[in-house]
């Protein structure tokens, strides 16, 4: 199972957004797309989801051009929980969209709640949850869709530092279990190094891949905190990012 982005180019109006971005994600890999704010990271997801068409280049899955959109489960930057749906119905939203009746969708989702720390909260409304719980609900909503690829768009950007670390640990544990292929867009270097198998570093707009970093460190990593090699890698990435900005 391989997802390939090949030399993607995009201009929106007068803004040159993507200048030939290529990357690859294989089965069960965790890939981070790291870059300065406004580099066009989220735009890559819009291309994958089909809400934008590239001017050039192509997206292929197992060698075939990507048709339809049932490959990706997407988690937007803000949790985008619907205030008028109970927590369990928010998590089951994707299943309902696929045509499952509400009751059946709920039954399918209910056993997963404890793993997301939402046990006993299924009848709550989103506004009654803490920031971290909302994010976990949004993640649960993404995972239950059972799609081959996860697209996470800065999922923890809006959380306070402590909650963010807790959520990263928790995400690492979940992904160890499910081994689902994941693309993460982030501007948090530490997050990328801690979670990824490979990091694609993007330049400021127009975005191209400046460098690719492999992160071979054994997992789980979040429990122990970054080791010396990870810290060295963080420093290297930060330096490359800052040099890119000076150009």
């Amino acid at each position: 199972m391989t997802l390939r982005l090949d030399d993607l180019r995009l201009t929106r109006g007068v803004t040159h957004v993507l200048d030939g971005v290529s990357l690859e994600a294989r089965a069960a890999e965790f890939i981070s797309i790291l870059g300065p704010s406004g580099a066009g990271k989220s735009t890559l997801f819009e291309l994958l989801l089909g809400s934008l068409e590239p001017d050039g280049g192509q997206i292929s899955f197992n060698g075939q051009p990507v048709q339809g959109r049932d490959l990706f489960a997407f988690m937007p930057q803000r949790d985008a929980l619907m205030p008028w749906r109970r927590v369990i119905d928010n998590i089951a939203l994707g299943l309902e969209v696929q045509g499952l009746p509400r009751r059946a969708a709920r039954e399918r989702v209910r056993p997963l709640l404890p793993r997301f720390g939402l046990d006993g909260f299924e009848r709550h409304w989103p506004h009654q949850l803490s920031g971290g719980m909302r994010q976990r609900a949004a993640l649960a909503r993404t995972l239950v869709q059972d799609r081959p690829l996860l697209l996470l768009d800065e999922p923890f950007g809006a959380l306070d530092a402590l909650t963010r670390t807790r959520m990263q640990r928790w995400l690492e544990a979940r992904l160890q279990e499910t081994r689902v292929t994941t693309l993460l867009v982030t501007h948090d270097v530490r997050e990328a190094v801690a979670l990824s198998d490979r990091i694609y570093l993007l330049s400021p707009r127009p975005a191209r891949v400046v460098e690719v970093f492999d992160v071979p460190q054994p997992r789980p990593r979040m429990e122990t905190g970054p080791g010396e090699e990870a810290l060295a890698l963080e420093t290297r990435i930060l330096r490359t990012l800052l040099e890119g900005e000076r150009e």
Binding site: E46, L49, S51, F74, P76, L93, V97, Q98, Q145
Partner: peptide, 8 residues
Amino acid sequence: RLLRSMGA
């Protein structure tokens, strides 16, 4: 966007 990504 979320609903669209779900195929709605």
